[in-house]
């Protein structure tokens, strides 16, 4: 808990510092491209009136679906690769090759395959997260101390019991660490994937304000997406503290 409070303190320090830099930039640059932060914060009444909560929820729904699918497919795949040499031999080259490909470059293909609506957006988020999940799960299962299997197998554990008592708890810390990183990437990619085929989402809100040369609105959108990104980061941190008390 203390760790979490420290992180929140760190967030506020960073938030304050960024705003000071922003304000100084506004004072020295004298351009409409860098508005006064105070004016941007005063604009939040209008942001709320623009149904920003619906935009946030739409984005979270896309991120949530992409994340859910990545976990549903990535966790069993990572476990399979760790436990089966045959599966690892086939799947590892595929993962190794696909891992560094910038997933946003696949956006045109995703659009052609799954259309301009939510399908392609969720597919890109899914592709960003799943490789992180597979690699984190496979590596943490491979790092399990063999003596843990020895004590449980000798005590009559079934395969299901081994997965429940050893494999799943062993992958949890590493999985949450990698999710923290990949969720950040997924939120940042909203800017691209919500720039088409939708009228809802934080990415859409920013792109829309930008195209209307409404810089105050654009900055407000950037602040909202940043806060949501941080909230997701903090939520995963909180989950790590709650779910992995032994760390």
């Amino acid at each position: 808990m203390k760790k979490l409070l420290n992180r929140i303190g760190l967030f506020f320090e960073g938030f304050l510092l960024i705003n000071i830099i922003w304000y100084l930039a506004y004072l020295f640059v004298h351009s409409t491209v860098i508005p006064n932060p105070i004016v941007v914060y005063q604009n939040f009444d209008k942001v709320l009136a623009d149904h920003i909560l619906i935009h946030i929820l739409s984005s979270l729904e896309r991120v949530g679906l992409g994340l859910g699918m990545s976990l549903l497919i990535g966790i069993p795949m990572g476990i399979l690769m760790a436990y089966s040499n045959g599966a690892n031999k086939i799947l590892y080259p595929l993962v190794y090759f696909s891992y560094p490909i910038p997933k946003t470059a696949l956006l045109p293909i995703a659009m052609l395959l799954w259309g301009m609506r939510d399908g392609s957006k969720i597919a890109i988020i899914f592709l960003i997260i799943i490789f992180q999940v597979i690699v984190a799960v496979r590596d943490s299962v491979q790092n399990i101390d063999p003596s843990l299997y020895l004590v449980t197998v000798s005590a009559g554990a079934s395969k299901r019991q081994i997965i429940w008592h050893i494999t799943l708890p062993a992958i949890l810390p590493e999985l949450l660490t990698s999710l923290r990183v990949s969720l950040g990437t997924a939120v940042s990619v909203l800017f691209f994937v919500e720039g088409y085929g939708t009228r809802y989402g934080m990415g859409y809100y920013i792109v829309d304000a930008w195209s209307r040369i409404d810089y105050i609105g654009m900055y407000s959108g950037i602040i909202v997406i940043s806060v949501v990104g941080f909230a997701l980061f903090a939520a995963v941190d909180f989950l790590s503290v709650k779910l992995c008390p032994w760390r």
Binding site: D145, S147, L148, L150, H165, I166, A170, W246
Partner: peptide, 15 residues
Amino acid sequence: KIAVIPQNCGLLPWK
């Protein structure tokens, strides 16, 4: 009922 005590004792870190 077989009990094993391995070299590093094999306690599950998450329990």
